[in-house]
Amino acid sequence: MNIILEDAVAVYVAMAVALSVWIVIFIYLWRIDAHAKEMRRQLDSKSRTEQNPVPTATLRAQKARESSE
């Protein structure tokens, strides 16, 4: 019989499998969480720089003034 399936060993094999699955899930969750946090930070900083943008009309007027000078 396969040694892995023997009663005394099987319980340790099952534990190792369950523990490995949990470790993989944990790392996956941790990484997703970190990525989500990073994305949130980037979005927040982007929205701060986008606040109070110069209106297009002002930009056009500035450009016209510069070219006339």
Partner: peptide
């Protein structure tokens, strides 16, 4: 807190297989 969840559930898995006794009629 997240690390704690990881260690806690890892501990539960180990206890489930190594500490919890077999129950008569059910085995593992």
């Amino acid at each position: 807190a997240k690390l704690f969840i990881g260690i806690w559930l890892g501990g539960v898995v180990v206890a489930m297989f190594l500490l919890v006794p077999q129950y008569e009629g059910l085995g593992n």
